[in-house]
Design a binder for these strands. Structure first.
Length: 501
RNA sequence: GGCCCUAUCGUCUAAUGGUUAGGACAGAGCCUUUUCAAGGCUUAAAUCAGAGUUCGAUUCUCUGUAGGGUCACCA
């Protein structure tokens, strides 16, 4: 109640931010970053975050995009108060459902004499443009503005009449004080021939209606900001706070990262097994930095630390190697049950795992979780471990035939039998209650040290895993359990005996 | 071409009118480990260039250079 009163009487308007994608396909890193910053800022200020769909270009619209965008944001944990599925007091959050509003504002501008129908054909416009290009000057429509305006009947595009072209100055929270010459100002289209508004017009009306206080967007909009300002002026509204985000660059730093350059669908990262908390953390750090040496953040801490003042001016490259490293950091922070469940899910989705018939019980997985955690950065690394059969020793019997052959060729078989026999006896003596890595090592180590570590431990590794790459034999014994461990050693010994004959 | 923006290790970045210019990823080396991985330690690596202001610039100013954005009935 008190906070409600405070809110009503507070002079400072409540922070409202929005993410306003066009439904033209999947969401990539840049879009997700913009959405995240807007969301973080809203959360930090106890404000409102809106998801608005800017579907005014019917040509470029890709079916299913809205669902895809929603799915992506949800995965990242970004929640909208109003969105395509949740209309607000201002109505729909889908621009194609707000056409009346735009028309209404268009009429206001017409009434003020600040909007007029464009009499030219696209061919005529094109020739103007070619001319300007040939003369190496920027194309300005207003140089061709008709003397007298017809009445707009909707059959032609409606243009904004820039009343007073002049040098414009404005403030950007990130870039500071900016300005641009009068050539940045022109008569732009408000409503297209097809009845849909342009971005330039629609976003301003919507931001106004939705009470948006902070506009965050990438830096390609700096150049058109003077146009927006002239429209705010004509509409007699106070512009929101402008926050320009730095570009995310391609690996070679020569260009903004675009879909063509391999900018991935964010959900691809999900498929590869990145944690959403990694993506959020990492995305936040491309273009912003708290100014401390801390890099790994959970979400609440990120909200706490996030500051518009610390957003960068210059662009940066999205470094997937570092992303992998960070994912491991977040994997380590994950509660064990969550990690186990995720590993189980990933493994059970794998066809090969089904073929191998591994028992993916929580008990087994919990036991081997630390070893898995040591060996992966991303869940998709599990797929590799399966292909390489690295995980086999957790679930299947070693291939003793292959083993015995190797022993015959390369190792002193008698010595191997002697060592394995000792190890077997030593381990048998370890009580069930002490079947832990440390105690297992304790039981074998003095002997191994005396006899030659490699001589003793290498056969043991083979006996247990059937491979020459595996976690250390003590960990392995711990994971496999006393019964399986002894069984495998026994079988290995049998193979040795057979080979010795 | 006009207008506009940007500039610290290979990459992400910290700092500030005075630091040996700090950290992280990747790299190299060492330790640990039966091997691989993981982990630990160590190491190499940067203020775009030139002027100016200043006792002192990476930081402030100017010029240049390079890169980027924009000049749509796309957003």
């Amino acid at each position: 109640m008190i906070s409600r009163i405070k809110e009503l009487f507070s002079k400072k308007p409540k922070v409202v931010t929005r993410f306003a994608p066009s439904p033209t396909g999947f969401m990539h890193i840049g879009g997700a970053r913009t959405a995240l910053y807007a969301y973080l800022w809203a959360l930090k200020n106890n404000g409102t975050f809106i998801l608005r769909i800017e579907d005014t270009d019917t040509e470029r619209e890709v079916e299913g995009s809205i669902e895809h965008i929603k799915k992506t944001l949800s995965w990242l944990g970004i929640e909208w108060k109003y969105g395509p599925d949740k209309p607000g007091p201002f109505g729909s959050c889908i621009q194609s459902e707000r056409l009346d509003t735009y028309r209404e504002y268009a009429q206001k501008l017409i009434a003020k004499g600040l909007a007029y129908p464009d009499p030219y054909t696209s061919e005529e416009l094109e020739s103007f443009r070619t001319m300007a290009d040939a003369e190496k000057r920027p194309f300005l429509y207003r140089k061709h503005r008709p003397e007298t305006f017809e009445k707009w009947d909707g059959s032609k595009a409606l243009r904004f009449k820039v009343a007073n072209p002049r040098r414009m100055k404005w403030h950007d929270e990130v870039r500071g004080d900016l300005e641009a010459g009068e050539e940045a100002l022109d008569d732009f289209i408000l409503i297209k021939k097809d009845g849909y508004p342009t971005y330039n017009f629609a976003h301003i009306i919507d931001d106004l209606m939705m009470g948006v206080t902070h506009v965050m967007r990438a830096d390609e909009f700096i150049s058109s900001t003077p146009k927006f300002l002239s429209l705010y002026e004509a509409l007699e509204i106070t512009p929101p706070v402008l926050v320009t985000l730095p570009p995310i660059l391609r690996n070679d730093k020569t260009k903004k990262l675009g879909k063509r350059d391999g900018a991935k669908d964010i959900l691809e990262y999900k498929k590869e097994g990145f944690l959403p908390e990694t993506m959020v953390n990492f995305l936040a750090l491309v273009g912003w930095n708290p100014g401390t040496e801390r890099e790994v953040f959970n979400f609440p801490d990120l909200v706490k630390a996030f500051e518009i003042a610390k957003i960068h001016k210059a662009g940066g490259v999205f470094n997937e190697e570092k992303l992998r490293w960070m994912n491991k950091e977040h994997l380590k922070l994950l509660p064990k049950e969550k990690f186990v469940e995720a590993v189980r899910e990933r493994l059970s989705e794998n066809e090969r795992v089904k073929d191998l018939g591994w028992k993916l019980t929580p008990e087994v997985l919990t036991r081997i979780a630390p070893v898995i955690l040591d060996r992966i950065e991303v869940y998709s690394d599990l797929d590799l471990m399966i292909v390489d059969r690295d995980l086999d020793y957790y679930f299947t019997e070693p291939n003793y035939d292959a083993l015995s052959l190797r022993w015959k060729d390369e190792v002193d078989l008698k010595g191997t039998i002697k060592h394995l026999t000792f190890v077997k006896d030593a381990l048998t003596a370890v009580p069930d209650s002490k079947w832990r890595e440390g105690d297992i090592k304790e039981a074998i180590w003095p002997y191994a040290d005396a006899e030659g570590r490699g001589q003793v431990l290498w056969p043991l590794r083979y006996a247990l895993s059937g491979k020459d790459k595996s976690p250390n034999p003590f960990t392995l014994s711990d994971i496999l359990g006393k019964e399986t461990t002894l069984k495998r050693i026994t079988e290995a010994l049998k193979k040795c005996a057979d080979a010795n004959v």
